[in-house]
Nucleic acid binder design. Structure first.
Length: 574
RNA sequence: CGGGGUGUAGCGCAGGGGGUAGCGCGCAGCGUUUGGGACGCUGAGGUCGUAGGUUCAAGUCCUAUCACCCCGACCA
């Protein structure tokens, strides 16, 4: 490709809207352009890189028996109603009607559609197991997009679905997908952390996320450097330092005028916050929930929602709290059993003689103990993990870090097949629901993550397998006939030998050309100029190295070998 | 959805005491240049996000609205 003809220019200055490095470089290098919030066009260079990523995904999915299919992006609402996700998905899913008034949605994921397909095609255990996948556009009307390609509303995703006769077979297959995912990331130059995750709205009994530790990420990860355990903070359960038991003392009421927050009360009474209990009020499924947790901890709303099986959870308003007869700021767990649902974090048992509200304006209670002084409806872990909490496996201190979710795989089980009646006849003649796994990975996000990880001050440094082109051929002194002839000749010769070349044939100054080459970041740069021709050759420089050398053409081809040839040639050899 | 910010030429920005808009880069033409974002001359390009309002007069003041970005909530 000639740079003089390439659609999409490089930008000298960083567009004001981009704060994340990968976003800035994608825009500056002419890879993508924004259309609306979280909606991007891919220009030729970006699109080529994306297609290479997709190519790797296809190879790896095919290698574990996957069959590529293509599912529609417009779905009838009834299918989503049948699994209950029409309501659950909420405003994230775009909905509209066709001309006859039939309700349709834009698919945010494809479990419903693929299960519907499977129930029509599959009726015997003899047809199992199988895995199908697609690479397709999804639209999710997220409340907030951000960071260029890291979190967008319209995106392409590789989603795969496997179908099995039983859970054991799914358990056997699942690790193969897991490994294929690692292969994909490795070939893109990334080494993500695999993390236990909360299945969330997808459902199922187990799921793993492939997380790239990066401060640009929007998830918080919990890591144990001692034993290697890692989890998404969203659902992680950690241990805390043990608190020595004390002899329980009798309740005592103390005046705490004007002390509304835990910190104020603790300071006023001269106790650490971990010797207090705090109360927080939520509305879940339309009902007020009284949540108690030790004063030094915070409630993890994802855990709470999952415990209550509430798809919607929000903090209660002051009126709602007062309406239940609770004195805001001085709420007490004592005496509410049976009136309001009380959920407590298990931390209320880690310690004793706590300070808690007295449910009386300006007063708190000292020496509150569970369970001698109050009862709860549910006692579970609903606390946020903190830096320094202890690993549940080896009891060493945990670290928190941010991460980008590159992929997520789930053992779905029979959630969808049961809801949609996707059954088969097993060996024993019994009708059983198909057992499913599903496996997702964003293509554009992966592209963004690669750049986030692989760049320098000057621009992108493409991992060879996904570079838009392999060789950036720069011609300097192009006004001189000998030079332009030599450069044109090299370009033709490289193409003829099957190399992937981006040829800078523009009449620009050397600085402009070198800077653009560094910005675009192809793996190998070849320079033809008056100077290199004087020694009969071409300058060779790798993007990921500082040094360069001049080689004569015959030596050049020997050096290049097959390494920089077009991807298709390489993949055929695999 | 809460909090914060920004909308002026393709990009980055200035003008903010009301008086019909400017700089740098980029773009077009001509000439000189050519190993790390060259130089000169000439030129094109803007209903100042949009809609109302105040005023003799609004980029500038007032109101509403839209878009985009950041933090948080959310994230199948």
């Amino acid at each position: 490709m000639r740079l003089s003809k390439l659609f999409g220019r490089t930008l000298r200055e960083v567009p004001a809207e981009a704060t994340m490095v990968s976003h800035q470089l994608l825009l500056r290098a002419g890879m993508i352009r924004p259309l609306a919030a979280g909606i991007y066009s891919y220009l030729p260079l970006g699109w080529r890189a994306l297609k290479k990523i997709e190519g790797i995904m296809r190879q790896e999915m095919d290698s574990i028996g996957g069959q590529e299919i293509r599912l529609p992006s417009v779905h009838p609402a009834e299918l989503w109603q049948a699994t209950g996700r029409y309501e659950e998905a909420g405003p994230v899913m775009a909905r509209f009607r066709d001309r006859t008034g039939r309700e349709l949605v834009l698919g945010i994921t494809h479990e419903e559609v693929v299960t519907d397909l499977a129930r029509r095609e599959i009726n015997s255990y003899r047809q199992l197991p199988f895995m199908v996948y697609q690479i397709q556009t999804k639209f999710r009307d997220e409340p907030r997009s951000r960071g260029g390609l890291i979190r967008v509303r319209e995106f392409t995703m590789k989603d795969a679905y496997s179908f099995h006769a039983n859970e054991e077979d799914l358990d056997d297959y699942y690790p193969q997908v897991y490994q294929a995912y690692l292969n994909i990331f490795r070939r893109c130059g990334l080494e993500p952390l695999v993390v236990e995750a909360a299945p969330g709205l997808m459902g199922g009994r187990a799921s793993h996320e492939f997380m790239l530790p990066n401060e640009a990420g929007e998830d918080t990860l919990v890591l144990c450097q001692a034993c290697g355990w890692a989890a998404n903070a969203e659902g992680a359960v950690a241990m805390r330092e043990e608190v020595a038991g004390q002899k329980e003392r009798p309740l005592e009421e103390v005046a705490t005028p004007g002390m509304m927050t835990i910190q104020e009360v603790a300071d006023y009474l001269g106790v650490p916050t971990r010797e207090t209990l705090k109360a927080i009020f939520y509305i879940a499924l339309g009902q007020l929930v009284f949540v108690i947790i030790r004063g030094d901890l915070d409630v993890n709303e994802a855990k709470l929602a999952s415990l209550l099986q509430a798809s919607e959870l929000r903090l209660a308003t002051e009126e709602e709290v007062k309406g239940a007869g609770i004195v805001a700021g001085y709420a007490s767990p004592l005496g509410f059993k049976g009136k309001v649902k009380i959920v407590a974090d298990r931390s209320i048992r880690e310690g004793s003689n706590f300070v808690a509200g007295a449910n009386k304006e300006g007063h708190h209670l000292k020496d509150v103990n569970y369970p001698s002084d109050f009862e709860v409806d549910l006692l579970a872990d609903i606390a946020m993990v903190r830096e320094g909490d202890l690993c549940p496996g080896c009891r060493k201190p945990l670290r928190l870090t941010r991460g980008v979710e590159l992929g997520h795989i789930f053992k779905l089980g029979i959630k969808y097949s049961e809801a949609l009646g996707a059954t088969f006849l097993d060996k024993d003649g019994q009708k059983k629901p198909l057992v499913m796994g599903c496996y997702g990975m964003g293509t554009g996000r992966l592209l963004g993550a690669v750049i986030e990880e692989s760049h320098d001050e000057e621009g992108i440094i493409w991992p060879p397998e996904i570079a838009p082109y392999q060789i950036h051929l720069v011609a300097l002194d192009i006004g001189q006939a000998e030079v332009s002839e030599a450069a044109e000749g090299s370009y033709g010769a490289l193409l003829a030998r099957g190399y992937e070349v981006l040829y800078d044939d523009r009449e620009e100054s050397p600085g402009v050309k070198f800077n653009d080459a560094d910005l675009i970041g192809l793996p190998l740069r070849l320079t033809v100029s008056r100077r290199t021709l004087e020694v009969g050759g071409v300058e060779v420089k790798r993007r990921d190295e500082e040094s360069s050398r001049v080689l004569e053409f015959p030596h050049l081809y020997r050096l290049l070998g097959d390494r920089y040839k077009v991807q298709l040639a390489r993949s055929a050899k695999r």
